[in-house]
Design a protein around this nucleic acid. Structure first.
Length: 332
DNA sequence: AAGCGTCAAGGCATG
DNA sequence: CATGCCTTGACGCTT
């Protein structure tokens, strides 16, 4: 069993101590408002160009990750590969048969390469995907967002069996875990095979996501759990056992990040104490932010204990650079 | 070349 | 009720 460490969405390089995006491995973007200012022809040409670029870049990214040592072969693909896929007006572009054919054949290559190179892939619909909203139109839009990801996952040849791919969401919204449970029968089999539920740091924490352990795998975000509760949860904790069991034999994935050292402003070799930080006037909002690198060695030592039972997705500004450093510090 | 304003969507915190 | 923030840069437009 390979123990993996991964990163999210973007490949960067270090140039003169500055983190710099590598264009040919990363996505291009556009905005609805920009598209609306163009002629339909120009706008659709732009979407076509972005689609071509992003699919090529995603393939190159998977190949790049596939060239790393086994334990670093894990990456989250961006949700922005096909911009406006679920937007009210421009979603029509993505229904064109020529567009769908292009997506289908190119995503299929990405999936094939990932499987050949043993790269573990995932995706993560963003904050606007709220399956547990109390507004029906928001739930419906969120369902479409899930199915957008499911289309990409299916084209890549995943979603055929339980957790051959991870598509991670938060509970989101005001209704709570029950809403997630209730909507599952309305989702595609691809979505039901790939969805995972992550605890957040404000509304729905680990105690809430655990209520879904019988129907979906749970992703514990160690940082979110710390921000919400102040706890450095241990691998031996009974709740961790429940999280692990929710994956039904597949090696789980957890998320890991650290507070920004300039916000915490304390020793980098001891565990920050949440209650002391909050008492000193630091807002939880500020503590939510992710650091550039994993500079706190005490927090790293604690997180290391979790690598035994789960692959670790790093959420860092320094992306692949920071996860590589973490791997090097752990692989002595 | 450099600087600045803009960006689909939800929801929470703040005033 | 209205505004700003979260995340976060990348892009396009102006100077």
């Amino acid at each position: 069993m390979v123990k993996r460490i991964g990163f999210a969405c973007k490949w960067v390089k270090n140039t003169n101590n500055r983190i710099e995006s590598v264009a040919e491995l990363n996505n291009r973007v556009t905005t609805v408002s920009w598209l609306n200012r163009q002629t339909k022809l120009d706008a659709e040409q732009r979407l076509w160009d972005i689609m071509q670029h992003n699919l090529t870049a995603s393939l190159q990214l998977v190949k790049k990750v596939g060239s790393l040592t086994d334990q670093l072969r894990m990456v989250r693909l961006s949700s922005d590969i096909l911009p406006m896929y679920t937007e009210g007006v421009w979603s029509t572009f993505w229904k064109r048969p020529d567009v769908r054919n292009y997506c289908e054949s190119n995503f299929s290559i990405i999936g094939e390469v990932a499987r050949n190179l043993n790269v573990r892939l995932s995706m993560h619909p963003g904050q606007f995907c709220c399956l547990s909203s109390d507004r029906t139109e928001v739930v419906e839009n969120s369902r479409l967002e899930i199915e957008y990801h499911s289309d990409m996952i299916r084209w890549m040849g995943y979603g055929k069996s339980w957790q051959d791919f991870k598509c991670n969401i938060h509970v989101g919204g005001r209704v709570g875990p029950t809403a997630i449970r209730n909507i599952l029968p309305k989702l595609s089999s691809t979505a039901r095979n790939t969805l995972t539920i992550e605890n957040d740091e404000i509304s729905w924490g680990l105690d809430d996501t655990l209520k879904l352990a019988d129907c979906l795998p749970l992703v514990i975000d160690l940082h979110h759990h710390f921000i919400k509760t102040g706890e450095y949860i241990l691998p031996s904790d009974a709740r961790i056992t429940k999280v692990k069991d929710s994956w039904r034999g597949i090696r789980p994935v957890i998320h890991y990040s650290q507070c920004r050292p300039d916000v915490v402003n304390s020793s980098l070799s001891s565990l920050p104490d949440l209650s002391i930080l909050v008492a000193s006037g630091i807002k939880k909002q500020q503590l939510r932010g992710h650091s550039e690198y994993f500079t706190n060695s005490a927090v790293n030592s604690w997180a290391y204990g979790h690598w035994n039972w789960a692959d670790i997705m790093c959420e860092l500004k320094s992306k692949n650079l920071g996860s590589q450093l973490l791997y090097e510090s752990w692989n002595i």
